[in-house]
Design a protein around this nucleic acid. Structure first.
Lengths: 349, 349
DNA sequence: CTGAAAGCGCTTACAG
DNA sequence: CTGAAAGCGCTTACAG
């Protein structure tokens, strides 16, 4: 490995000057800087991270901890974030250390990683409301960015879509089409994104003067099986008048709902409208549903570059509050939503 | 952060002695060792990785590089390995650094990580035959372990199942049931596991005196869509006499095949037998297929602890050849395989 | 059995 | 504008 000393020797300079040249210190002359740069390039120099960390307290490495087992369902979205973050961090010359969490205590793995004194900060994802990991790290002044946010008045850097709007706009679209009985198949209750969508759903239903029917707001992991089960229960079950429209928290839930409509001999959108939120995951395309699915759309990978930059900037001393991004999802109307059926299949209760 | 000096000061010992006590050097007295251990525990000491690396050349960190985009299909298996390895490495006090590879040159990301001079070794997965990454790292003497192996005479540590046997035993089971036209829906050709299975398939077919029909050995990514398409083409297409049995490289391929049989009005196993290799991925259960699927079974996560241990031992100086594991997959006969139909749906060509 | 000292490769006051 | 020196927290010959 080439060291600063190697470059210095080659050029007849001290390591001090070489270090300064490479780190863009203003006092070094332009000519020296260029010579050093050229030599570093030629010799294939890359700074030794361990030595840098020891000297500066910064390692150029950040951590991400994945909850396993119970949360395996998050694989798809987690993998998307993980790979995207890793690439975006690499562009900022930062490495990503991965750890898994298998225990009950959500902060324990963070404590352990901090003890190693190796990482400059953390990326968290899938926050629950008032996430204990966030307060733990915040209290200790550890830089962190969050994909999502654990409360609306978050005081740390985050990137999230407006989940309240995601739900509300979906309701508004369907209400405008004349639907009155609108079911919302939401994600698991503890996650803040799901809690926020539930609020948006209720608010928009209230504003449209529509009742939230018994059992019409459900909380499940994003799987086709759950979507199928809930749709079957709502459409054919004994829970009162069936919904004429479904809003699904994910494409997988929508897949299950579509399956259920087929099995019940219902046509989409003639008998029932279906829409979903689309995270833009590869290999899961809303437009290739039959019929093509109306969605609110926000690709998860769009979060990665902003999050990576925010974390690196934060570590560099930027103001946390300036690193908060609230994005709006895009509403894409396709063929799975249509006017409410003139006469309900069953009379209004 | 507690340092060796802190412990030394608290105990009236030098950092030298503290370091030795913590690292189990034989010369330190049992009493001193215990005192040091207790103090370290009490003060919450964890060695600073960067300092250790600088002093010893070892960082306690290893790397894994994931190919993205084109290879996204590998998500499921990759995530399983990634999470499993991370946990298994943590048990050996080793951290995992993740990088993504988005380029064309497969060795470039390894070269870049080596330049950082941060990692003690690498875990590779999904090797292609004569994988250039493996020779690149081997030539430079970088410790590595491979999930799978890129050739049968591999001279590095690996953990793999016997893919030749996986295919051969499947053929033998079906041949014993009287099947003569057996299709093999394999994984992509370039991966060594798929190449090895193709060899096993051909060998077992030859040994059973059965012909490999035109188009009966296919290579596709492990998706339900590919399974569906191939099964449809083989069962209803113009490729000659249809197979009476399918062996699938993965559960997803089998899912597609099952779907195709339903659409064609064929009963499994009466009209056609179906079996697959099952990687033991969560949320994808062979026994919940209808009918329950006969499989060769080897859970991917079983590879993680052996691989993690092998890598740590290798870094510690163990003989690479002693760290090679070839496991046999388990044959589990369920309800999707049965005797070959008495009379073929179409006559023997 | 224990300790003082050098060194790993960097950064950063402090001098000039 | 450049350099000599100290220091980050460890490990490891070298002495005793």
């Amino acid at each position: 490995m080439t060291t600063l000393k190697d470059i210095g020797t080659a050029l007849g300079l001290s390591v001090t000057t070489v270090s300064r040249a490479l780190n863009d210190f203003p006092e070094v002359s332009a000519q020296t800087r260029d010579r050093v740069r050229a030599a570093a390039e030629r010799l294939g120099y890359q700074a030794n991270r361990s030595a840098q960390r020891l000297a500066t307290g910064r390692s150029g490495m950040v951590g991400m901890i994945v909850k396993t087992s119970a949360d395996y369902r998050a694989d798809q979205t987690f993998m998307e974030i993980l790979v995207g973050m890793s690439a975006a961090l690499a562009a900022r010359d930062t490495d990503l250390v991965l750890a898994v969490d298998q225990g009950r205590d959500p902060v324990e793995p963070y404590r352990r990683m901090l003890g190693r004194d190796l990482l400059d900060g953390f990326i968290l994802n899938a926050p629950v409301t008032h996430d204990p990991r966030i307060s733990f790290l915040n209290e200790r002044g550890i830089p962190l960015v969050v994909h999502g946010r654990d409360r609306v008045d978050a005081d740390y850097p985050f990137f999230t879509i407006d989940n309240h709007a995601v739900a509300a706009e979906s309701v508004q679209l369907l209400a405008a089409l004349g639907h009155r009985r609108i079911a919302y198949l939401n994600g698991p209750e503890q996650y803040s994104y799901a809690a926020r969508r539930a609020q948006g759903y209720r608010a928009a239903m209230a504003q449209a003067g529509l009742p939230v029917l018994e059992g019409a707001l459900t909380h499940d992991p994003p799987t086709a099986a759950a979507g199928y089960r809930q749709a079957l229960s709502l459409l054919a079950g004994q829970r009162g008048a069936p919904p004429t429209a479904f809003i699904c928290g994910s494409l997988l839930l929508a897949e299950g709902v579509m399956h259920a409509t087929v099995d019940l001999g219902l046509a989409v959108p003639r008998d029932v409208s279906v829409m979903a939120h689309d995270d833009g995951l590869p290999m899961l395309s809303a437009s290739s549903f039959t019929p093509a699915l109306t969605v609110t759309h926000a690709a998860l990978h769009d979060a990665c570059v902003p999050l990576a930059n925010a974390l690196v900037d934060l570590i560099g001393g930027a103001d946390p509050m300036s690193l908060q991004v609230l994005n709006r999802a895009e509403l894409i109307v396709r063929d799975s939503t249509g006017p409410a059926p003139e006469t309900g299949r069953t009379p209004w209760p």
